[in-house]
């Protein structure tokens, strides 16, 4: 598709961007006396329809509204799959795991997703993943299930699906070629590989497992990160200190929560790259991540207020605003 085909969508996004929360408003929310005051503030800006609504419902409404807006505005519905990769593979993981835990997967599925969730549950129940239309997803599910049965270890199945999700990100990134989406895919893939590498180090995983768990990298050298992981935490730290992820990986060693915040903030910084782009998919992708980050932040603030988390702790964890 030509970038000008997104003219309608981008103009609508620019109009919506004016409603995204800026840093001063988020500060106001953090400094609010309690959840009630937060709810009042959110209602005053039209984020909530009523103060009586639960946090979960408010978040779900916002997510649904975002997805309805994006899916109805983009000129090519095919691009929607680019935005749902992680959710799609998370749902696949849920379906496979629920077979072993005998739980109902419907309670754990996340939206938006491009997968037909009923079909996914049916495929998992019947152990016939060929029912799924995407061959890459069905092959991943089959491999994960078979590995879990063979090794009697659910973690292996999870690892196969997580790796496949990264492979899918890489595929999509290559299909798009360049831009904000590709940069975000690269960052997500690399940072999740770093996380996996550290976890493998801490739990002294075998070579086979590390090879399975660390998937394709973008700005990292896969063979070197695997080698460093197998050589221990110091080797891994030394390797990562020479990459563009040096700062983030140093955070992970001290505090994983700070690492997660750094990852989320970096994604928003990357998304800001298309703030002044007039056409194309980039502004769609940026707005999607920006709005999701806002929803996540509000969810975090409301949950913290409800649980009585101190303001200082909350201030440290709140993500940066896109606007």
């Amino acid at each position: 598709m030509k970038d000008t085909d997104y003219a309608f969508c981008v103009a609508a996004i620019r109009a919506r961007e004016t409603d995204l929360f800026a840093a001063p408003f988020i500060k106001k929310l953090v400094e609010a006396e309690g959840i009630k005051q937060c709810m009042m503030l959110l209602k005053s800006v039209g984020w909530l329809e009523s103060e009586e609504v639960s946090i979960r419902e408010a978040v779900r409404n916002q997510q649904e509204d975002l997805w309805n807006f994006i899916s109805s505005s983009v000129p090519d519905k095919n691009v929607l799959k680019y935005l749902c990769v992680l959710n799609d593979f998370f749902n696949l993981k849920v379906a496979v795991k629920c077979i072993f835990s005998k739980e109902k997967p419907d309670d754990f599925y996340v939206k938006p997703t491009t997968l037909d969730l009923k079909l996914l549950s049916k495929a998992a129940e019947k152990n016939d993943y060929n029912l799924l239309t995407d061959s890459f997803i069905s092959n991943t599910a089959m491999s994960a299930y078979e590995l879990a049965c063979k090794t009697e270890n659910g973690q292996n199945a999870e690892t196969v699906i997580d790796s496949a999700a990264i492979e899918m990100l890489k595929k999509h990134s290559e299909a798009i070629g360049k831009g904000v989406y590709c940069d975000i895919c690269a960052f997500i893939a690399d940072t999740s590989n770093i996380k996996t590498a550290f976890r493998c180090c801490f739990t002294e995983k075998s070579k086979d497992f590390v090879n399975l768990a660390i998937s394709s990298c973008f700005k990292l050298d896969r063979s070197r990160i695997i080698e460093a992981t197998l050589n221990g935490i110091e080797a891994l730290e030394a390797y990562l200190s020479g990459t563009c992820y040096a700062y983030g990986s140093s955070l992970y060693l001290n505090d994983t929560v700070k690492y997660d915040k750094w990852c989320d903030d970096r994604i928003i910084e990357i998304a800001r790259g298309s703030k002044y782009t007039a056409f194309g998919f980039d502004p769609v992708c940026s707005y999607y991540y920006a709005k999701n980050s806002e929803i996540k932040t509000v969810n975090m603030i409301l949950s913290a207020k409800q649980a009585g988390v101190p303001q200082d702790v909350l201030k440290e964890r709140v993500r940066i605003a896109y606007a």
Partner: peptide, 9 residues
């Protein structure tokens, strides 16, 4: 097209 996008919001 861009105008319609803005007017939709």
């Amino acid at each position: 097209e861009a105008a319609a996008g803005l007017l939709s919001e």
